[in-house]
Design a protein around this nucleic acid. Structure first.
Length: 216
DNA sequence: GGTCCGATAGGCT
DNA sequence: GCCTATCGGACCG
């Protein structure tokens, strides 16, 4: 499988944990029939592999093995895994690393750098520019990405990804526990949420809900 | 600013 | 049946 460019080559040879900080500042652009919208990624989360891969991750959708739903995650790097959640939202990941391991980066937030008007029409609830793509489901909504984009390439129209010229300096990079991952795979054991320090479009952190509420 | 809670449908045990 | 890699509106300060 020939990489289409240097950015694709990079994804092929790195796990999601290595690729995630490199994706901060990258531009993801979607050209829909209604027009283009592009975001600069400001917050991402890395998910590593299935239980039988070199880097198992209980928080990963692929942890328990391949199913029809997560099949794209087990494919080659450079494809987009889009899943439906909470009965109404879509979230998008970029598949990384070696095919079969099921490692990918969830895109959690970004700032709109092109197509702001179209993004507002897709996100009427947004009170300001910073809310347009603040959160994983808001980001897909602003970009116009849904289930029909599951399994498409991210280096070929209508979706194109372009990495930043340089990774963020340590001073501009923050890390912490992943949002919403409860039980094994959550908390500080897996500090694989990465964001641009101080950026206004980064979604607020909420600790994952415990499986059973504490008894008072 | 923060916190709480309902909506809603599909995946998986 | 239970759970979910969430959002937005209501309400409180």
């Amino acid at each position: 499988m020939d990489p289409v460019n240097a950015d694709h080559e990079f994804l092929l040879h790195h796990s999601a944990v290595e690729a995630a900080p490199r994706l901060l500042g990258a531009i993801l652009r979607h050209e829909s029939p209604d027009g283009p919208v592009a975001v600069r990624l400001t917050e991402v989360e890395a998910y590593l592999g299935a239980h039988d891969s070199p880097n198992p991750d209980p928080g990963s959708h692929g942890y328990k093995g391949r199913t029809e739903r997560n099949a794209v995650m087990f494919g080659p790097a450079g494809y987009m895994y889009v899943y439906f959640t909470y009965g109404m939202h879509f979230c998008a990941n970029i598949v990384c690393g070696t095919a079969g391991t099921s490692t990918g980066v969830l895109m959690r937030a970004g700032e709109i750098v092109e197509g702001k008007d179209l993004a507002y029409t897709r996100r009427p609830a947004a009170k300001n520019e910073q809310e347009l793509a603040k959160g994983p489901a808001r980001l897909t909504q602003a970009l116009g990405i849904d289930r029909q984009h599951n399994g498409i390439e991210v280096f070929r129209s209508p979706v194109t990804l372009q990495l930043a010229d340089h990774p963020p300096s340590p001073q501009h990079l923050s890390t912490g526990p992943r949002v919403g991952v409860s039980g094994p795979g959550g908390g500080h054991e897996y500090p694989w949420r990465f964001w641009l320090s101080g950026n206004k479009t980064v979604s607020v952190y909420r600790a994952a809900k415990p499986r059973q509420p504490p008894v008072v």
